[in-house]
Design a protein around this nucleic acid. Sequence first.
DNA 1: ATGGTAGACCTTCTA
Length: 259
Amino acid sequence: MRLATWNVNSINARLETVLTWFEEEQPDVAALQELKCVDEKFPAEAFERLGYNVAVHGQKTYNGVALLSKTPLEDVQRGLAGEPEDEQSRYIEAVTGGATPVRVGGIYLPNGNPIGTEKFAYKLRWMARLQAHATQLLPLEERLVLMGDYNVIPEPEDADKPEGWLGDALFQPESRAAWRALKNLGLTDAYMQVDGAPGGYTFWDYQAGAWQRNHGIRIDHALLSPQAADKLAGVTIHRDVRDREKPSDHVPVVIELAL
DNA sequence: ATGGTAGACCTTCTA
């Protein structure tokens, strides 16, 4: 079973690019982030034509997440508990996989810039809510994959120029500590298990020639429960996609489970 | 120290 995560930076601006990649790679399950549209404007039919079931948690202009799967999406949940007044669409979860079920959470974690503002406080609150949710899920002892744009650079090795990110919300000690705390519940960073190669970045800014200079960062992650990690067979960062026409600033990450 | 790009959408915000 191949599961993909991809921040597409507007699904409607990116539709051709995304559909082409789906036709080529045929992931069984996918989590998309930054749809930048409401549910009604998500191009569900285009994905259904490729054989996918679709669940969307959209929002006007900003954020928005979706799950796609070749098998039915069951027990779909939208949003994270803990802050009822939160109107940002950043989390969607479902159980899929048919006879070999996997619980999949699609994550678009807040960016949090600039630091020292309510945006950064919101990021940290959101991470605490995600940790609380994972704490609830782990005792179920299911195969669980929490994948998406975490907007956290875990270690200096995850940035081409770490010194350039010292003042950024993505590389703050508090952000990195919250990421570590999440992992320390007993979740496995899929990338670190299979492919420790340096330069495994997933995001290159549109600005200042970041792609041409390989000024990248690794911020799109998949965390696995022990039951999922036991089945982990591979991780691929689809770096070449960044060089195509009208690219997103993020590239797809695919994890393979031996299911 | 700033600017550089992209997308939604209406003028500025988010990233």
